[in-house]
Design a protein around this nucleic acid. Structure first.
Lengths: 353, 353
DNA sequence: TTGTAAGCGTTATCAG
DNA sequence: CTGATAACGCTTACAA
């Protein structure tokens, strides 16, 4: 290799990759002009812009995001905090976020809080140290310390999954209380009275669904705490079966079951099949989230379709809008949900036996 | 606000957060000593170390990762490229990666290639521009261009999910060909002869499982291309049902079905139930991956348990070891798989009717 | 619209 | 073991 012409006595630490200065030199302009051409081409004359982009291509120049982040005190990164990765629901939210980020120079960096407030706060601090361009966090039950960190983050913040009265900045989700209400009311309307509730994990959102269930049951005059069976264990299909067996042992006369989510419902269905308890003839069954599987199960399972993918899309769109200086008309976006009525809660079908 | 004592005529751009220099001043040492105390405490005398950490606590100092990345030409980030997020399998790999990263200052940054080579290359370039500390990519079928980028990445690289003869750097996974062979052989051993294969997505790993299936069928003298039904559509439970109906229409005399993955198998089970075709009495059924659900389905479904979580753990462990200068004894780690035999392939059980 | 100079906060270098 | 100094590659502030 020929020695660099401006090599000094001091060793240089260059990585060897072309820099903005190299591009500027080749294009015969100042470095700042190149920087501007990259960030906001409109601010540079067409003539120079062409020369610059030619030089960039010739050199194979790629912007160094670390240097950029240091100089501007702003990393091109959106931090995302989710409580779980195994949970299909969050996988879809992430998919929505990524999808909304196509052809954006923003990167997403996410972390798993494992449903722990302490972890959430710790991870948030890690994120904040990088000066992210935006933050997406799950739920509305942050600790006061976490909330303060979010308020002082100095970047757009979106709380996702549910909505509440007091956003840190922006919010997108739906009402889990109403979701719980809606599915339970459907069962009541279908003539069920001894409706059990099965719940796992029991995070704040699960509790709000349970509240919705209680509200309906009380209004219908058929509430009984014995109908409720929950565990703090993580949700899974097999836990669904376990919860069913506990509930059935406790209250064998139940005529319907509302499950905190679809995994549990699936487990209940299998357990019922194994115990020769026909669904819905003997027991009606409903889930929550409407995983793809629910529509094709046998019998197909009634569920509340929640807009996971859309929540992700919308959240990232809100961040980008805020970054572009546009304040949303509404800082709280309720994406709602949809009750999907299927065979598992329809007694008048051919499945009865 | 009181003006900073050393404020010059030029505006300063400080973010206001304490810096290494602030810590150094307070501890009465040089900045580089603080930097060293943070990165490798053993290189600093105990006395100063204490003074430094006290100062850090007093000031609430947090290292600026952007400045660090610029100065060292190394970001504390591991880039992870996966082909899908909806796929449960990759969600578990990510969980394994995160789990292996607890109490490490490394962050993970991941991206979704959507099973596209072009996207993979593009995303890899984005990652590389940040000088990541490590890279984890899925599969072994990178394009030549992508492979070259990986070879010149200048950081540890781990290819995950499967193993092959020619790693870029390191590899951890298992043989999908052997997986396909094993499950098919099990069916042959169980007396099945007209064994169908159902596949969705058909990425390279799916093809290798199919090859394993073919090998066994040919060896058993019962191979027939009509037994194979595949689609390039993404895998899902409902696609499983569709594929089953196609296969059953084409070859109604099949006595068993090997599914490319568990989603499909689940869909087949539901479709069989709906069509009153008892599993396994009329049709034996096997999946691939052994999702949690398979063990509690009714009937429970035979599957190949693949070490997803462990792959993630091992991959990140290999990156960390390499970063610590330890070269692994073996650059290729075969984590194997396990055949889980269940009711869906056991004809002599009480489910027969 | 463009450029100059100064910084962003950390780490590599090399001398002590 | 410690520290002064010069990078790292980009962007902000300000002036032209």
């Amino acid at each position: 290799m020929v020695e660099t012409s401006d090599a000094k006595n001091r060793a240089r630490r260059s990585s060897g990759r072309p820099t903005l200065a190299d591009v500027a030199r080749r294009a015969g302009v100042g470095t700042i002009t190149v920087s501007r051409a990259l960030r906001d081409p409109k601010r540079v004359s067409v003539e120079r812009r062409d020369r610059i982009f030619t030089a960039i291509d010739d050199l194979g120049y790629v912007l160094n995001p670390n240097a950029s982040a240091l100089a501007s005190a702003r990393a091109a990164v959106i931090g995302v905090l989710v409580p779980s990765l195994t949970n299909n629901v969050f996988a879809e939210v992430l998919r929505g976020i990524h999808d909304g980020l196509r052809d954006s120079r923003l990167q997403i960096q996410f972390a798993n809080t494992h449903y722990s407030d302490v972890e959430e706060e710790r991870l948030l601090r890690v994120f904040l140290s990088q000066h992210p361009s935006g933050l997406i966090v799950s739920g509305i039950d942050q600790t006061p310390a976490t909330r303060t960190l979010l308020e002082k983050a100095g970047c757009p913040v979106v709380q996702i999954m549910e909505i509440g009265p007091d956003p840190v900045d922006m919010m997108v989700g739906f009402s889990h209380f109403e979701g719980g209400r809606t599915v339970t009311q459907h069962l009541v309307d279908a003539g069920c009275r001894r409706i059990g509730f099965l719940g796992a994990r029991m995070d704040p959102r699960s509790h709000r669904r349970l509240s919705g269930y209680k509200a309906v049951m009380e209004a219908a005059g058929c509430f009984d705490p014995a109908f409720i069976t929950t565990t703090t264990l993580p949700s899974s299909v097999s836990i669904g079966g376990d919860l069913f067996r506990m509930a059935y042992a406790k209250t064998p006369n139940i005529d319907a079951l509302v499950c905190n989510n679809d995994d549990l419902a699936m487990g209940v269905l299998f357990a019922c099949q194994r115990a020769s308890l026909p669904v819905p003839a003997r027991i009606s069954l409903a889930g929550f989230n409407d995983l793809e599987m629910m529509a094709v199960a046998f019998p197909s399972i009634t569920s509340i379709r929640t807009p996971r993918f859309e929540i992700g899309r919308q959240a990232i769109a809100m961040v980008q809008a805020a970054l572009a200086g546009e304040r949303p008309a509404n800082a709280i976006v309720d994406l709602g949900f949809e009750l999907k009525i299927r065979e598992s809660t329809t007694r008048s079908n051919i499945l009865n036996r």
